[in-house]
Amino acid sequence: MAVVELEDVTVTYHTPSGETRAVEDLSLTVESGEFVSIVGPSGCGKSTLLSLIAGLIRPDRGQVRVGGVPVRGPNPAVGYMLQQDHLFEWRTVLDNCLLGLEVQGRRTRSAVLRVRRLLKDVGLGDFAHRFPAQLSGGMRQRAALVRTLALDPKVLLLDEPFSALDYQTRLKLEDEVSHILRTQGRTVIMVTHDIAEAVSMADRVIVLTHRPARVRREYVIDLEPRRSPVQVRESPGFSRYFRDIWRDLDVQV
């Protein structure tokens, strides 16, 4: 079943110096439980796609549907995780994770218990009452993940969620996040500029063109799924995907 559908979507940004077409006649569909990565040249409008699905911006033309319903604004069924953790320095880890529930008026005792359990699952059980400044980069991003999962979204949007982390932390977190999200059977759309990350985590990789963004090619990643991203990186087929996508991106330095 298609959970997220974009149909001939066009988005234009207006600034005093002119207008920029970020996305043009783009269509894509994401199935329930699927993990899709979107890669594309930098500045091609990847993040715009996520903003569309999250209901933060409206397309000029075309339609965006989540769960079959046209998107008209922010939607509790969609969770959005940004590149930086954006934890609020003045709130404890637990209070940060409860932020979304608070905004939606759903901060109940059972919700708090559930969030505490989530924190424990990502290894932050002992840090619930610490402040973000006392956490490492990886821990902070885990807390940001819990903050997103706390709302129990059907669809998770990840906008380069690991790019601010150092390499080791990043690999470790890719494994953990991928394990958590797959165990919970979430539908995930992840934007990244890291081809290896896209191939190793996703079921399907969508490559976009230069601006205005359109779908250039799609790859169904067939590499013994359900293995961890670190292991996937060692599969023989991995480098072929990497090479093909690299060529599609046609990187000009």
Binding site: L56, P74, G79, L82, Q84, H86, F88, L99, V103, Q104
Partner: peptide, 26 residues
């Protein structure tokens, strides 16, 4: 930070909530 406001808006926060949850405490 506009991204903190974006985060709150993605939760469906009203303008008043944006003000009391991030702008004022920040």
């Amino acid at each position: 930070d506009p991204n903190k406001i974006l985060l709150l808006r993605s939760f469906g926060a009203t303008r008043w909530q944006v003000f009391t949850k991030v702008v004022l405490p920040g």
